[in-house]
């Protein structure tokens, strides 16, 4: 589904990704771990098509399509979803309007019928319940005045409503207490599907106790330097990132 080869990318002129390769197949869950500043968010932003994140070399192919020339909205309509590390507040635009506009744009692009407002509301309420957000959050401005955890849960709510093919979750676990972590993990697990791929970006191992990945990758210095299964995540947790960095230097 996602095939990244030798990706180099700059942020405001500075090279952050330096030859990153990654393959993710439908039905799989991958975890990307790595120290702060290693380029994890940069990777997700490059994939989502954010301004000022420039691909300078390498290829990104999503279901056989070259992503690099596509606008962010085209990528989303093609089935890519990014749960941002720092979800954006948009006062004055309600969560429900946001979901409606999003679903309508997606449906229009695919030549499908958008859900009517009754169906939309019913689905949105059910999603609220699943991520344990009060329904009043649908009426509030997008992420406006939400706590850190509420923002993350709101991202998962959008994930559930939009049903993408590929979900990139950037540190969706950070800043969550244990109950919220369980809720978010349950939400993500409910989205596991043989036709869908999920990439979890995380700094900590603990999320992987709840969402068991098929593969774990370590990102450091703008490259994937090690891949393995869940055991790799446990090893990282016990030995710390300096273990990887040391290994990389000696390699």
């Amino acid at each position: 589904m996602l095939d990244i080869q030798d990706l180099h990318a700059t942020v405001e002129g500075q090279e952050i990704l330096k030859g990153l390769s990654l393959q993710v197949n439908a039905g799989e869950v991958h975890a990307i771990m790595g120290p702060n500043g290693s380029g994890k968010s940069t990777l997700t932003n490059v994939l989502a098509g954010r301004d000022n994140y420039e691909v300078t070399d390498g290829t990104i192919s999503f279901e056989g399509r070259d992503l690099s020339g596509m606008e962010p909205e085209e990528r989303a309509r093609a089935g890519l979803f990014l749960a941002m590390q720092y979800p954006v507040e948009i006062p004055g635009v309600s969560n429900l309007e946001f979901l409606k506009a999003s679903l309508e744009s997606m449906a229009e692009a695919r030549g499908e019928e958008a859900p009517d407002s009754v169906t939309l509301l019913r689905r949105a309420r059910a999603a609220c319940e699943q991520v344990d957000l009060d329904q009043s959050f649908l009426k509030r401005g997008v992420n406006e005045g939400f706590s850190g955890g509420e923002k993350k849960r709101n991202e998962i709510l959008q994930l559930m409503m939009l049903e993408p093919k590929l979900a990139l979750l950037d540190e969706t676990d950070s800043g969550l207490d244990i109950d919220a972590l369980r809720t978010v993990a349950a939400g993500v697990n409910s989205m596991r599907d043989e036709n869908r791929a999920i990439v979890l970006v995380t700094h900590y191992q603990r999320l992987l106790d709840y969402i068991v990945p098929d593969q774990v990758h370590v990102l450091s210095g703008g490259r994937i330097i090690k891949s393995g299964d869940q055991e790799l995540a446990k090893e990282l947790e016990s030995k710390g990132y300096s273990w990887i960095n040391g290994e990389e230097q000696s390699a």
Partner: peptide, 29 residues
């Protein structure tokens, strides 16, 4: 706000529609 625009677009909303929504949202408060 460039980040607000990106956030809306990353959910499949076209750029002109995202601008319209942000314009309305600004006053809608």
């Amino acid at each position: 706000d460039a980040l607000q625009l990106f956030y809306l677009r990353s959910r499949g909303i076209s750029e002109p529609e995202a601008q319209r929504m942000l314009g309305i949202g600004f006053i809608n408060e």
